[in-house]
Write a protein that binds this DNA or RNA. Structure first.
Lengths: 145, 145
DNA sequence: TCATTGTTGTTCGGATTTGAACAACCCCAT
DNA sequence: ATGGGGTTGTTCAAATCCGAACAACAATGA
């Protein structure tokens, strides 16, 4: 369990650093940044709400709230899904894509400085494999909201 | 950054699983469990508020709130620090220690099932080392509240 | 066709977290 | 001893997050 404690503490500290950096760089929270990133990684820069919620691992209601925040700032727009009348597409705006390009380097720098760059190639590879396995084991059920 | 994305998703999913398990097993949140665990790992089962906040990586005000919750349930008591009149010692009660013993196995089981037991010995070792390095790099400043 | 079942996103209430402001206290050099 | 600077823990308002409940729509089978 020593490994787990180390994992926990490191995660929390890293989360704090990231939050601090994003807030000061662009007034964004980490969840918001994750949303923008996921949208940007999409061919059409858009995604259904439910799928997006799954992607960033947040509850549906939590995503609704964050999308509303991002919409206020003009970084994201809502569109009703053409193929499904009840569905909603979150679309990354030009402003959103621009902001992301602008702040991504600073974010990556923090992640590298406090984690990635500290590891040997073997450790990095092992960690990636480990996280992938964990992700596989937990995918699927147990996503209530 | 693929490693980082995997890390993020796995962390979030694991957090959800843990929260779910603790809630159903004892009505505790993960932060509350972390507090109890840290107190239990202490020789006298007690710790100063500030030190405890640092240990579980939470803000001072956040800890005040959680200790109040735990106190309501009789799992923790407050004592004024003998050596420092303004200081407060959070003390794990017998009930708290008992509850911890009771639910620890179930918690450990989740962590093992979705992370630890999935890894090869080398991966586990690498991850531990990696998290230790990250923790080192981030210890110290940048803990405002 | 049409009723039943499932899915989608939002709203609501409640719980948790944070940072800033604050009062009380400690410590050190004067 | 004492004033100034730090530390400690709490309170407060604001922001965020979740789960349950809900309304609207889709999909399925008889």
């Amino acid at each position: 369990m020593a490994a787990w404690k180390a994992f926990l503490v490191a995660s929390h500290l890293l989360e704090r650093r990231i939050e601090e950096q994003l807030k000061s760089a662009a007034g964004l929270t980490h969840p918001q940044y994750e949303i923008l990133t996921l949208l940007a990684a999409t061919p059409e820069r858009r995604m259904r709400m439910t799928e997006l919620a799954r992607g960033v691992v947040v509850s549906k209601s939590g995503l609704t709230y964050q999308i509303a925040q991002l919409e206020k700032r003009g970084l994201v727009e809502r569109t009703t899904c053409p193929a499904d009348e009840r569905g909603v597409l979150a679309v990354l705006t030009e402003a959103g894509a621009g902001l992301l390009e602008e702040i991504a380097p600073g974010h990556v720098e923090v992640v590298r400085r406090f984690l990635i760059d500290l590891l040997t190639p073997e450790e990095l590879e092992a960690m990636t494999a480990a996280m992938g396995k964990a992700r596989q084991a937990m995918r699927g059920p147990s996503l209530p909201s």
